[in-house]
């Protein structure tokens, strides 16, 4: 007897990615560099967040050709992004045989009120969140993995730190609340009661939680790991830097050895130029991608 795509199986793949680095790539050549550098998965997309930010316009799911090309070029899991609420892009990614779908605020949202109902799609979903309420809503819709949103394409880690700390605070609040307080708390954070109850009973999120959005150096990756996330997404930080291969390898080693400053020093030598960062205060409110998501 075999049953495909149960929630346990969806969550299970995320469990296998723990302690690893997931890298944004825009073509087969970058995907191969990522795999050889030790990435646990690649995220196939049309433009990396820094370029989406610079060029503007509507950002959509990658072209079928790009996705196919990346799938064919590597043996590690391949992820791809669908627009928030765009369930047809998700259906197409499912049919393309993608291993994980990121319903992502980095793309232009397709629905201003609703996210995708993720239980109906065989492929597991990862969703961004800025706080525990948002994480609970996404898990309620069927997300099998959560990532902090951070502020993608900035090379600035401050928002990822803010969201991770906010998530930890939220989990602690639920964990230490009396059972009788959970419904009121669920109402306050606009979260489904069942998910809040599950977090209360487990003492942690029921799914894996990665860090994303602004990680640019080995030290950034180690910082996020020490703050308690399960692994990291690196977007623009690698292929917008001076020496992508060296930097990718260094971030992978730093993510494994996040508690070992000596190792962090060793891998941080001779990395070339990091991506040029953006100060969050210099962004207009409308330019902040983390605000997308309901």
């Amino acid at each position: 007897m075999k049953i495909e795509s149960t929630f346990k199986i969806k969550k299970g793949l995320a469990e296998m990615l723990k302690g690893g680095v997931i890298m944004d790539v825009v073509n087969a050549e970058q995907a191969v560099i990522a795999e050889k550098s030790g990435a646990v998965a690649v995220m196939a997309l049309e433009r990396i967040p820094a370029d989406i930010r610079a060029e503007g316009g509507v950002a959509r799911m990658s072209s079928v050709e790009t996705i196919q090309e990346v799938i064919d070029s590597v043996s590690i899991p391949v992820m791809a992004k669908a627009r928030i609420g765009h369930f047809v892009e998700a259906q197409m990614l499912e049919a393309l045989g993608i291993d994980f779908i990121d319903e992502s605020e980095v793309l232009t949202p397709a629905d201003d009120k609703n996210h995708i109902y993720k239980h109906d799609i065989k492929t597991p979903f990862v969703n961004g969140a800025t706080d525990i309420g948002e994480a609970c809503r996404r898990i309620g819709e069927g997300a099998a993995m959560i990532r902090t949103k951070g502020e993608a394409g900035t090379g600035n880690v401050i928002e990822a730190v803010k969201h991770m700390r906010s998530m930890t605070d939220g989990i602690n609040k639920i964990k230490t609340s009396d059972q009788n307080e959970l419904m009121s708390l669920a109402k306050e954070i606009r979260a489904p009661f069942d998910v809040v109850k599950e977090i209360h009973d487990l003492g942690k999120l029921p799914v894996v939680n990665f860090a994303a959005g602004g990680i640019a150096t080995p030290a950034d990756a180690a910082l996020m790991m020490q703050l308690g996330c399960d692994g990291v997404f690196v977007g623009s930080g690698i292929f917008k830097s001076g020496d992508p291969k060296e930097r990718a390898e260094a971030i992978v080693i730093a993510t494994t050895n996040y508690n070992d400053p000596e190792k962090l020093i060793e891998v941080s030598k001779n990395l070339g130029e990091p991506m040029v960062g953006i100060n969050i205060d210099d962004l207009d409110e409308a330019e902040k991608l983390a605000k997308r998501g309901w």
Partner: peptide
């Protein structure tokens, strides 16, 4: 053989 049971959509719980 790596990934011989298929990609994630073919992953399963089995007896």
């Amino acid at each position: 053989e790596r990934n011989a049971y298929g990609r994630q959509n073919q992953s399963f719980e089995g007896l």
